[in-house]
């Protein structure tokens, strides 16, 4: 192996992502051994489909955390985008392009509003997003009365199913709307963060906000972009969630904020800003998904699922903190 590759592999081996990967591989091996169902294509596709909503939101939140902020208003943003978009689609008719354009527009605008409050009124992001969570959600339920929408346009309810193929006797697989959106979200977020100068500026700003200002970054614009991106992700996630649930339920999304936070921080993103990767977020999401799925496949009552999830979160964050502390003491002595 060339020297550079050895060095970068060495760096990867010390990274949070490496340990997460090991844990997941171990978990998968164990689950695959215990239950043949686990490592089937069917299960894989099901998992991807049901975790797409949390995954897309997690990618939006990842960008916000890297930039050094936090947002927890995204569930309310998603609820608003979902309700308004599909109401409009029901009333005036629409197609795939127009519903996504509307949802993205609404999500992006609400997200950008957060950035305006944070930057122009100089209020910490945690306060702003708690406030806007209540404002968006409160107004949505006030105006809609919290009524569910069960009738969706036929084409929307049917969804999409690409690259269909048969496997075994009577199971067929394909790329559905959820998987497609999740894959695109991962791709776009990865490109944004690693392949564009704006993405690198987001990392830089999260790492040292003062320096970013001094070097002449357009800090306000970057924040609009970051929180707007979170809103866009919320808009997209809201549509694929409605498609999967086959209904619009304005009250079920709010309250799931912390599931998303858990996935991102398990993936190694820091609340202090500047740290976090798309791969890490993918692994954090995978860990949660595999864990919850595995518990069900092992025949454990689903009532106990949160218990095990909580246990894994606690053990993994404790182990990470402990190993970091050990490394610090060792390097301090060296």
């Amino acid at each position: 192996m060339p020297k550079a590759h050895v060095a970068s592999f060495g760096r990867f081996r010390r990274s949070h992502e490496f340990w997460l990967l090991l844990v997941i591989l171990g978990l998968c091996a164990g689950l695959g051994f215990a239950n043949a169902q686990f490592l089937t294509l069917q299960n894989l596709f099901d998992l991807l489909t049901s975790y797409a909503f949390v995954g897309i939101l997690a990618l939006g939140l990842l960008v916000v955390l890297i930039a050094g902020g936090i947002d927890i208003s995204f569930t309310a943003t998603a609820s608003v985008a979902q309700y308004v978009t599909l109401s409009l689609a029901n009333a005036y008719g629409a197609n795939w392009i127009s519903v996504f354009a509307i949802a993205i527009g609404i999500g992006g605008a609400l997200g950008a509003l957060n950035a305006v409050f944070i930057q122009k009124l100089r209020i910490p992001s945690i306060i702003v997003s708690i406030a806007t969570l209540n404002i968006f959600y409160g107004l949505l339920i006030f105006f809609t009365g919290g009524k569910y929408i069960y009738s969706l346009p036929d084409w929307f309810a049917t969804g999409i199913f690409w690259f269909e193929f048969e496997w075994g006797k009577d199971s067929s697989y394909g790329v559905n709307l959820q998987i497609l959106a999740l894959a695109l979200a991962f791709l776009v977020t990865w490109l944004l963060l690693n392949r564009t100068n704006i993405g690198r500026q987001i990392y830089a700003m999260g790492g040292n906000a003062d320096a970013a200002q001094r070097l002449g970054f357009h800090v306000f614009g970057l924040n609009i972009l970051v929180y707007g991106y979170m809103g866009v992700m919320a808009g997209i996630a809201s549509l694929i969630q409605a498609q999967l649930a086959q209904s619009v339920a304005p009250t079920v999304l709010v309250g799931k904020e912390l599931d998303v936070v858990a996935a991102v921080v398990l993936g190694g993103a820091s609340l202090m800003g500047g740290v976090g990767t798309v791969l890490g977020t993918f692994l954090g999401l995978t860990l949660l998904a595999v864990l919850q799925n595995g518990i069900i496949l092992l025949g454990v009552s689903s009532y106990w699922s949160p218990f095990f999830v909580g246990l894994v979160i606690l053990i993994s964050v404790s182990a990470t903190a402990w190993s970091q502390r050990e490394r610090r003491t060792r390097s301090a002595r060296a």
């Binding site: 690198r200 990392y203 830089a204 999260g206 790492g207 040292n208 003062d210 320096a211 970013a212 001094r214 070097l215 500047g274 740290v275």
Partner: peptide, 13 residues
């Protein structure tokens, strides 16, 4: 004095 570097980015960046 604080150097205004970005600790989370690489030396090259």
């Amino acid at each position: 004095q604080d150097l205004s570097l970005f600790p989370n980015l690489t030396v090259a960046e």
